[in-house]
Simulated scan of single mutants.
Amino acid sequence: MRILHTSDWHVGRTFHGRDLLVEQESVLGGLADLVVDEKVDVVVVSGDLYDRAVPSADAVGLCARVLMRLRAAGARIVITPGNHDSAARIGVFGEFAAFGGLHLRTRIAELDQPVLLDDEHGPVALYGIPFLEPEPARHALQVETRGHAGVLTEAMRRVRADLSARRTRSVVLAHAFVTGGAPSESERTIAVGGVQDVSSSVFDGIDYVALGHLHGPQRLADNLRYSGSPLAYSFSEARQRKSVWLVDLDAGGLAGVERRELPVPRPLAALTGTLGELLTAPEHADLEGHYLSVVLTDAVRPMDSLRQLQKRFPHAVHVEWRPEQGRSHAMTYAERVRGRTDEEVACCFVSDSRGAEPNDRERKLLREAFAEVAREKLT
C-alpha cells in the first residue's frame, strides 16, 4: 500500500492580509496528479484541514473540489481534525462520506476504531486521533493526568489494545507537538495550562505515524514524521522546502518513505536597506514577484513606506523600521517629528504600536478627528 502523508492545509488562510485561495487550490489540486503518477492508494490529512473552525463558503468549496479530484484520481482519503478545525463540522455526514471513500475520523470516542483498507498483503488499520484539547479530552477519556501527554498516552493505549486483537499493519494520524520537532511562527500554540509537547515514545509499536501541526517537513524517526504545510504561512518558513511523504507498506510493515517536493506559487524573501536604495537598486529586480518582508534602515521613518514599496514590489506585505544603530538614538523626539503634520505623527505612532501602517479608512478617521479638534479650538 502506498500512502501520501499530508497535513496542515489551512484552507482559507490569508498571508499578511493577502488571500491565498488561488495558490492553495493550485498546490493542493496538484496532489491529484501526484496520486496518479505515483500510484497512491490512500491520502491522509493529519489535521488543520481548514484555518478556522467556521471556514468561509469559498474555503469549503475549494476543499470539496480538491477532495473530489483526489478521489477521482483513485485515492481513498482519511482525514482527522487539528486544533484549527471544528471536529463536529468536519465530521458531519462522515458515515455517508465513508461509502464514497472519504473517511472522516473526528470523534474521540471512536479513535480506537480504525479505517480498514486492504492491499495484496491483507488489511491495514488506519487510526485517526483528532486533536485532543487537554481538558475536554481528559474527561472524555477518563484520564487523571493533565496535559497533552496524558490524553495522547491514553488514546494510544486504546489504539494498541484494538491493534493487538487485529494483529495487522498500522498507521496513526495525530495532530500534536512531539518532542524534537521544530516549530515555525505560523503555528497556533496548543499549550493550555501546561506543557504542550509529548514524547515520541507515546507512538511506539506503530508501523507509521503521520503527524500534523508543525509546518516544516521533518523526520523524527523513520516511522515518525511531519509532512508540514503545503504552503509557507509565515516568513519563518521562507527557506523550507514544502513537501509530502510517500509511505510504502509491504507485508512486514514499513518498507520505505520518499519525499516529494511541492511547487511554490509565490516565493518568500526578505530585504533590508533604506527606502531609496530598495526602490532603485537593480539587483533586487528578481524579487519583484515575491512576497516580501522589508526592514527599512532610514534614520527617519519614511511615510507611506509600504505603499511606496508596492509600486516596485507589488507583493511586499510587511515592513519594519529599524534605523541604523546610533543614528536614530542621537535624535531627540522633537527632531524626529520636526516638519511633520499631526496626521503624519499620529500615523507613525499607530505604525510603531502595532507594526503595520494605518489603512485608508484609519487615515480618514484620523483626519476627521484632527478636523474636529481644530473646530473645537475655534469655538
Rank of each mutant, 00 (worst) to 15 (best):
I206T: 07
A299Y: 10
V78C: 04
V11C: 12
A53S: 00
I3Q: 00
Q218Y: 08
E258D: 12
E261S: 14
T272C: 12
F370W: 03
R375W: 02
S229A: 07
G256M: 06
R71V: 07
A165K: 10
E324F: 10
A59Y: 02
D204M: 12
Y291H: 12
P217M: 04
E335V: 07
G253I: 09
V317F: 11
N83H: 13
D8N: 08
E343G: 11
S26Q: 15
D112S: 07
V143L: 06
L173I: 09
L378E: 14
S229F: 02
K377I: 03
S305D: 14
D250N: 10
P114Y: 01
R107F: 06
V36D: 09
G253H: 05
A72S: 10
V192M: 06
L254S: 06
P323K: 12
F96K: 09
A137W: 05
R361D: 15
E38R: 15
R327I: 03
V27Y: 12
G30Q: 14
S199F: 00
P263K: 13
G47W: 00
P130N: 07
L173K: 02
P81Q: 00
D162P: 04
V36P: 00
A155M: 06
A334R: 13
N359Y: 12
R166T: 01
Y333W: 07
R188H: 07
L296N: 03
D304K: 09
V36L: 14
D19Q: 09
S199N: 09
V35P: 08
P217W: 00
I206M: 01
Y226W: 03
A251K: 14
V66K: 07
M156H: 04
E324N: 00
N223W: 01
T106I: 07
E135F: 07
T379C: 11
I90Y: 02
V345H: 12
L28P: 06
T272K: 15
H148V: 11
R13I: 00
V44C: 06
R225Y: 00
P302A: 09
W245L: 10
G91Y: 01
G101P: 15
L262S: 01
L70N: 13
R76V: 01
R361A: 15
D48S: 04
A251L: 08
R2D: 01
L306S: 11
E120P: 09
Q196L: 11
A140P: 03
Q325Y: 03
L296R: 14
H329M: 12
L163Y: 00
G273A: 11
V45D: 04
G74D: 15
Y127P: 00
T297W: 12
Q240H: 14
L296C: 12
Y208V: 05
L309G: 11
V337L: 14
M68I: 01
A334N: 02
H215N: 08
G193L: 00
S305N: 08
G147L: 06
V350D: 07
A346M: 05
H215A: 08
R138E: 09
G216Q: 15
E288Y: 04
L246E: 14
P134W: 01
L365N: 13
G74E: 10
D286S: 04
Q308M: 15
A88P: 02
R239K: 10
R169V: 08
T341Y: 03
A176I: 02
P265A: 09
V35T: 13
L366H: 10
A72F: 05
A140R: 03
G339D: 00
A161S: 04
G193V: 03
L67H: 05
S236M: 02
G82C: 11
W321E: 06
T153C: 04
